[in-house]
Write a protein that binds this DNA or RNA. Structure first.
Lengths: 191, 191
DNA sequence: CGCGCGATTGAGTAATTTCAAATCTAGTGG
DNA sequence: CCACTAGATTTGAAATTACTCAATCGCGCG
């Protein structure tokens, strides 16, 4: 089966410039993968081999506490990257689950291939550096939001920033991301 | 005035290996700076030129809300890095304050010099890549802790992980980092 | 039509905050 | 060495916020 990697190219080119030759070489290091709804990209306890760029679909990274309550670390839809980064970078076993909430197409990049791609193409090292820096800043902002904002404010900001997310995931999931109970979220969303 | 850069070298060598020649070259890109207690490394509204590695001392990065309530994003003592990364990477003005809580010695690295150092020494690019990845993971863990843990658990974990911090900063500051009021923290710390 | 999941609603409870006052502590100057 | 002061910490009461638990509602799908 043939996969079209043009969306991946467009994604990379949002950050760095690539010519045809370079992209051909780069794309070879990625492995496309299709998953059905409710399939797992990463399972707790399993080795994590890949980082994943989402071409199409939607996934969530989460942990469960003793009582089975879910805490969502991250959503990832079109153009986002997702994996258990702690396990990925240290080549260890996952401490979280990453599950598809829709039929999802991802492009997998192993740590090995990531290293090769960065060594071969200087621009790809730049790509990941820039992405990593932005990601760090985004996490800092989320921490400040968790410290500073009320549940209501966090809800409003998320709705404003990612309105499409609310059409794709249940409110229960939004609640697990914002750190409030679904009942409280229900109350908040009715103003 | 002469500065001894051997502590900086030791810090870098915790992550990558360097020979004398390389370190000599690398160190030239850093600018040492001494600050007194209550001086600012970064002031809200000012351009952020440097990232800072703390050789000695202690600083905090924080924001204030309308009522003047403080939220601490990060502490940094010996061997930590601190700046307003959003402003630093985008060469914009700071959205937070970074203030010394003790007499502090830092080594400053401008974005320009950071680029040069990474281009000249491949190992330094690796250093920052590895640091950045670890930092990202650490922020994810803090987010999960804010979502999942009670104030009591966050307090206990911080005390366990950074016991020396509690001897160097006031409880009010710890509270502003954990996201609880100082009264609640006082209650928590008395079991 | 009935099942099942998600969302909503309400009551009671637990945790945390705010506000105010009292207490403690470290550093200063007499 | 002591008294004084500013800042930090603790304590308590009242108010708020969010949580849990349970029941109900709404809707899509077989």
């Amino acid at each position: 089966m043939m996969y079209d990697s043009s969306a991946l190219r467009a994604h990379l080119e949002q950050v760095v410039q690539l010519d045809d030759v370079a992209f051909q070489g780069i794309a070879q290091h990625f492995q496309p993968k299709k998953l059905r709804k409710q399939q797992f990209l990463v399972s707790k306890g399993d080795r994590v081999f890949n980082d994943h760029w989402v071409e199409k679909g939607l996934a969530k990274a989460y942990i469960l506490d003793q009582k089975g309550k879910e805490y969502i670390l991250q959503f990832a839809y079109e153009d986002w990257w997702i994996t258990d980064y702690k396990a990925y970078f240290s080549q260890a076993v996952a401490e979280m689950w990453i599950e598809c909430l829709e039929p999802t197409t991802v492009w997998c990049l192993s740590l090995e291939h990531r290293g090769q791609v960065c060594r071969e193409w200087h621009t790809m090292a730049n790509f990941f550096r820039i992405k990593s820096n932005r990601g760090y800043v985004a996490l800092q902002q989320r921490i400040l939001s968790l410290l500073q904002d009320t549940a209501q404010e966090r809800y409003d900001k998320l709705l404003q920033k990612y309105p499409t997310l609310f059409q794709r995931v249940s409110k229960t999931q939004i609640a697990a991301y914002l750190g409030v109970s679904r009942e409280t979220l229900s109350w908040l969303s009715n103003k």
